[in-house]
Amino acid sequence: MSQPLIEFQGVEKRFGDTVIFKDFNFSVEDGEIVSIIGPSGSGKSTLLRILMTLEGIEGGVVNVAGEPLWHKRTANGLVPADNKHLHRMRHHLGMVFQHFNLFPHMSVKRNITEAPMRVQGKTKAEAEAIADELLELVGMSDKADMYPNELSGGQKQRVGIARALAMQPSILLLDEITSALDPELVDEVLDVIRNLAKKHSFTMLLVTHEMYFAREISDRVCFFDQGAIVEEGEPEQIFTAPKETRTQAFLNAYMSQ
């Protein structure tokens, strides 16, 4: 079996005195689509934020594409990563946020082209060609010149997806991307992800509260509670025949809502 694309080995993460992860192990294969479900405060988003280098770790190692993310290999073993190393590692990753985090002072198109031009050194023409293609993919071609605060939540999130894809990451992190949306706008965003999952061979890691969507799209579903994976398996098994009582309780509570 080949090496997993993402690998958490004995990771420890604390916020002050609060322990989020302790001796946490987790891995994702290349091309896998993994959904993470669980009650809030269970560390789901923290997992994604550690991968996106938005949160550091206190112990253990995170490997991405066979290389430690938060450490650098030296002759004397692993040392904490410097900015240069993080910058290089971030090329593997892209993230879509719960609250979109679009840049309000840039047009939709500029939101998408800014990073390819400034970070990857693409020309304006190259970046715009990518942007046009992605805007088409997310169904936003007609909104290219608008500004974020002129868009609906669903439209903003579709731009958010396009912006993350423009950097051509091999891993896409989706952090509760529909939680901030009005119910009627959820589907237009999920449709984009469905399309992506079908046409492209991304590795996707998504934290979500949309159970039917997780069931439909995932190769694997992980149920998180209190910083640990309580149960993981194929979606059919998790949703129809959960083995653990905590998983059953969570899903029952969720279904009865």
Binding site: L54, R90, G94, F97, N101, P104, A115, R118, V119
Partner: peptide, 27 residues
């Protein structure tokens, strides 16, 4: 400037100078 702006700039791999001058300062 909302914290999410900084986070999005990190996720898009902008350097710290670019984050400051292109994302945070204009807002």
């Amino acid at each position: 400037v909302p914290k999410g702006q900084y986070e999005a700039a990190v996720a898009l791999n902008f350097s710290s100078t670019q984050r400051l001058w292109r994302i945070l300062m204009p807002q």
